[in-house]
């Protein structure tokens, strides 16, 4: 049994300790907003937050998040920064196919939590760990800048 907080609520899951967090979220707990992309922590689609820090859930065993506060895309708009990013995403019409976007939003929020006014280079560096096959990078960059202005 592994216990942690998921989007503010305590949860206990009875799964093998080596089950990846992604499958606990999607299969055990039914939160399918977090996506399976590459399965090897390269594309960023599976990004969640653990105690506020981003985490690739596809390669993280559930045992590693015991006792931590996990936030997924479903609850990202519960705070000011998450809401600002979500609204900027809509304003800039960032999404094309959408598959990578929950991971992109989670990474953008993680960036703005530690750097309220990121430079262009800092945005590029922080967001470079998330891949978008539709090539929405320019709109992602603009939306992150816009969200930063909104929370300034």
């Amino acid at each position: 049994m592994t216990s942690f907080k998921l989007n503010g609520k305590a949860v206990d899951v009875d799964v093998p300790a080596d089950t990846p967090v992604l499958w606990v979220l999607r299969d055990t707990l039914g939160l399918t907003g977090t996506k399976y992309g590459c399965g090897i922590a390269v594309c960023g689609a599976c990004t969640v937050h653990a105690n506020g820090q981003q985490l690739r859930s596809c390669v993280t065993p559930v045992s590693a998040i015991a006792g931590q506060h996990i936030t997924t895309i479903e609850a990202i708009a519960d705070d000011r920064i998450g809401r600002a990013v979500q609204e900027a995403w809509v304003r800039h019409d960032v999404v094309q196919c959408g598959y990578c976007q929950s991971g992109q939003v989670m990474s953008a929020v993680a960036l703005l939590r530690v750097k309220r006014r990121p430079s262009d280079a800092e945005i590029d560096q922080a967001m470079s760990a998330n891949i978008c096959r539709c090539g929405t990078y320019a709109r992602i960059h603009a939306a992150v800048k816009d969200a930063a202005r909104a929370i300034a």
Partner: peptide, 21 residues
């Protein structure tokens, strides 16, 4: 350096998958 710390991808154990961190 936050928000890209080593632990974002490098977990508590090796992956058995090729090319995984």
């Amino acid at each position: 350096t936050a928000p890209l710390q080593c632990s974002v991808c490098h977990s508590t154990q090796n992956s058995s998958l090729l090319h995984a961190p």
